Simulated scan of single mutants.
Amino acid sequence: MGLKIESLQDRTDIVFSSDVIGKYAFQNINFNGTFGMVTSEENKTTLFLGAGKFIEKDGFSIKILGKKSGAATLVYGDNMQLTCDDVILLTIPDTYKKGEVVLTFGFKQLRGERLKMNGENVVNFKVPAMNFQEVSIGLK
């Protein structure tokens, strides 16, 4: 239920597409939905959840909360950008020193919840619906 596209300019797209909601895995990507894509190029990765419940790669994940399917995009690398059409649970690897981890967008800050998932230290953020914008994550 997928397609891998390798470009000549150091870009790879992994596309998941199905007319039935399902769980799929390829290499180090997990997806649950009907349409999603992971793009890797140079020093950034884009997780695009076009219609689904969950997408994850390398400890970064988006999970739609509250409804069966939604849309969201996370771009991470040198900087981070995010958009979602409903409330999501954003999970990132916990590489931060002791202290409170916060996600900042505009003038708002969201507190992160540090925990261990599948043996890995991660930080979860419950993020409200938002337009595509830069976000940053760091210690408060």
Results as ranks from 00 to 15, higher is better:
residue 2 G to I: 14
residue 4 K to G: 06
residue 7 S to K: 12
residue 8 L to K: 11
residue 11 R to T: 15
residue 12 T to H: 00
residue 13 D to A: 07
residue 16 F to S: 05
residue 17 S to G: 11
residue 20 V to W: 02
residue 21 I to H: 09
residue 23 K to L: 09
residue 24 Y to H: 12
residue 30 N to D: 13
residue 30 N to Y: 09
residue 31 F to N: 07
residue 36 G to H: 04
residue 37 M to A: 09
residue 45 T to H: 04
residue 46 T to D: 07
residue 47 L to I: 00
residue 49 L to A: 04
residue 49 L to W: 09
residue 49 L to Q: 01
residue 50 G to P: 02
residue 51 A to D: 15
residue 56 E to I: 08
residue 61 S to M: 06
residue 66 G to K: 00
residue 67 K to T: 10
residue 67 K to I: 15
residue 68 K to S: 13
residue 70 G to N: 02
residue 71 A to E: 13
residue 71 A to M: 14
residue 74 L to S: 02
residue 74 L to Q: 02
residue 78 D to C: 05
residue 81 Q to H: 10
residue 82 L to Q: 06
residue 83 T to E: 11
residue 83 T to S: 12
residue 88 I to L: 01
residue 89 L to W: 04
residue 92 I to T: 03
residue 97 K to F: 12
residue 98 K to I: 13
residue 102 V to I: 14
residue 104 T to N: 12
residue 104 T to A: 10
residue 105 F to W: 14
residue 105 F to E: 06
residue 106 G to F: 11
residue 106 G to D: 14
residue 109 Q to H: 13
residue 109 Q to I: 12
residue 109 Q to L: 10
residue 111 R to E: 11
residue 113 E to P: 05
residue 116 K to D: 06
residue 120 E to V: 11
residue 121 N to W: 07
residue 127 V to Q: 02
residue 128 P to C: 07
residue 130 M to C: 09
residue 130 M to R: 06
residue 132 F to T: 01
residue 134 E to M: 08
residue 136 S to V: 12
residue 137 I to K: 00
residue 137 I to F: 07
